[in-house]
Design a protein around this nucleic acid. Structure first.
Ligand SMILES: [Mn+2]
Ligand SMILES: [Mn+2]
Ligand SMILES: [Mn+2]
Ligand SMILES: [Mn+2]
Lengths: 223, 223
DNA sequence: AAATATTTTTAGACAAGCCTAAATTATGTA
DNA sequence: TACATAATTTAGGCTTGTCTAAAAATATTT
């Protein structure tokens, strides 16, 4: 009503979802993949795809999936940038837990004001990573690649730093809270169990046993 | 899509507008008054009024205007609280000008998360007034009355403190910026011109001449 | 009191975003 | 290659929130 944004919440959410999926795979993004990620129906996705295609935000060939145009990718990355900056604000300044910030940032990412994003960035002292270890795209649209590896693939006795998560669900993050696994702490692989892929790690003064499932959802940075 | 708020942006904006208008006048709020304030059409207002009436957020009698119910008033005040807290954030923390905060707060006020409001309030150290001098409603829904008077009604030679504005438009606020009139500074009425209602004031080391129009849009607190 | 002007409501339309059910196209398997 | 299955699109419908134009009610003048 008051603000007429360039793009609607729904449009930005679709672009963000398509961007995320296109990073996982070089192929065109399928209708069903988008529907799954956004928890909506394939028919709704087809509707929106047509609108975004009309606006030249993506390339669409019937039955062949979609690919973002440069314009579409730019908007997607801007939205990711806003999302991650707001997550930093919620975590660093308002002292939310890393398991609580995502849902609120899903809303805040759609606030329209270019100067707001810049001022927020400055206020947060230009953070490079969000509370989940994901890189914050620059104002120029460049997203730094992180060279993290899965904790499940860490070599025996090697030391590393907890650097990110694959699963962003609050259930998983709360489980890590309980284990006192936080980003930035040092980890060393003590033992790998070949039978079930579970591992034993040393963090701080504790030894922890982690299932393969959990280890595959934690990212570490080699020292 | 992701968040299903109790009330939509439009509903909250209508409730806020009706609350504002009902504070100006004890009578029921008219359809046209709402349409003017929200810059929409009377027909749209009638539509929305029916929906809000169905939801028991206001009492509506055809052709007789509307009155908020306790439930409607509660939501309106909560929205005002969020609006003003966000304005404080933008002004105090992000260093926006007082002429820039309103538009962005119009968007931020609709973010749904009760704990976010509480944490923001705490982060801002429980401010009592927004950058325009308007009181911030408490968590309990109580809005403190300010006993400010119009600068145009200040008595001769009396000293007072700049405390608020009636006109919140950025044009007016920018004009005050140019005159270096900011909230909190002392003001003394030096002369009143009976002919056109204009006044001469002393602020800091300067004497300023203000039209009646301007003086009627500035609020001061007696010392 | 009647005529006129203003306010408010109704009627009908539209765009955005979603849905279900049915039709169509693509893909994988016997 | 033909059939079965899965993916995708189309058709038609719904809600929200907006609009214009016309009708109805209320308020103001004369
Ligand atoms: Mn979102
Ligand atoms: Mn994140
Ligand atoms: Mn608003
Ligand atoms: Mn304000």
């Amino acid at each position: 009503m008051y603000f007429c944004s360039m793009y609607t919440f729904a449009e930005e959410n679709y672009l963000k979802a398509i961007y995320k999926l296109s990073e996982l795979d070089t192929q065109a993004v399928s209708t069903n993949a988008i529907a799954d990620l956004l928890q909506t129906k394939a028919a709704s996705v087809t509707d929106m795809i047509k609108k975004l295609s009309d606006k030249r935000l993506l390339k669409y060939e019937k039955y062949k999936g979609v690919e973002l145009t440069d314009k579409g990718k730019k908007i997607a990355i801007e939205t990711v940038r806003k999302h991650r900056l707001w997550e930093c604000f919620l975590y660093d300044k308002l002292k939310f837990g890393w398991d609580e910030v995502h849902e609120i940032a899903e809303q805040l990412e759609h606030i329209q004001s270019e100067v707001l994003v810049d001022k927020l960035d400055e206020f947060l002292e230009f953070p490079t990573h969000d509370p989940h270890g994901d890189p914050i795209p620059g104002k120029n649209g460049i997203v730094k690649k992180t060279n993290f590896i899965l904790l499940s693939e860490l070599e025996l006795d090697k030391k590393a730093i907890m650097a990110g998560v694959v699963d962003h669900s609050s259930v998983f993050l709360q489980y890590l809270n309980k284990l006192e696994i936080t980003l930035g702490i040092q980890v060393q692989l003590v033992e790998r169990n070949e039978y079930d892929g579970s591992i034993e790690i040393q963090i701080q003064r504790k030894k922890l046993h982690l299932s393969k499932e959990v280890a595959k959802n934690i990212l570490v940075k080699l020292k």
